[in-house]
Amino acid sequence: MDSSTIFLDAFLNPAVIDRYLPDILKGMVVTVEVALAVVATGIALGLALAALRSFRVRAVNAAIVLFVDVFRALPPLVVILIVYFGLPSVGITLSGFAVLWLVLSLVLAAFAEEIFWSGILSIRKGQWEAARSTGLTFVQTLVWVILPQAVRMTVPPLTNRTIAITKNSALGAVIGVPEILMQAQTAQSFSGNATPLLLGAIAYIVLFVPVVALGRWLETRFAWGRS
């Protein structure tokens, strides 16, 4: 056998593809589920925290900053392991899926809060003043005038950060969540062939390249040069 046949046999083996592609596809479904759940809760929580922070209650803001700092500084895998192996010993048992969703949501919320808050701070004071001068309340001003502008400015950085964090769904493989990587690794050890790993990588590319491209497009589209 020449080297290209060896390569194809090890990495794109038709029999292995045939046997394990369904598992990889099942993994893709799980990855998409994790990703969507994390995006929904993480961004919602981040936005809520940023809105809460704009009330500038000292104790509340200190707590928010602490939360954000900790989740920005800790590797997600470390948090996943603590929650996954730690909670059962205090009587709380969560499935791997729940742990992965919970931890990644908190991580995304921390980053999203920081990005939204930057956006809120970047809105000029005159916007607050104009709205308040027409009799809108603080909350009405926040909801109708400030947040829509702040959120729009944060779309590109938030998209890129969200992609980076949802890709961490692969960490689920370490705690037995049957997502793409876990399926690929299991298939690889059963088949004794690297094809499933390549399939796994391709599965991620299929899922995430469009999102990465979207992020790139948003970056140019929202490059705030509205003149």
Partner: peptide, 27 residues
């Protein structure tokens, strides 16, 4: 008490009409 600012402070994400109707509707 109507207030007019040096830097206009129109809401850039809304049409001119929506700038005007926001307080009429919400407040």
């Amino acid at each position: 008490i109507g207030m007019v600012f040096q830097s206009f402070n129109l809401y850039p994400h809304m049409t001119v009409l929506a700038n005007i109707t926001l307080a009429l509707r919400k407040s």
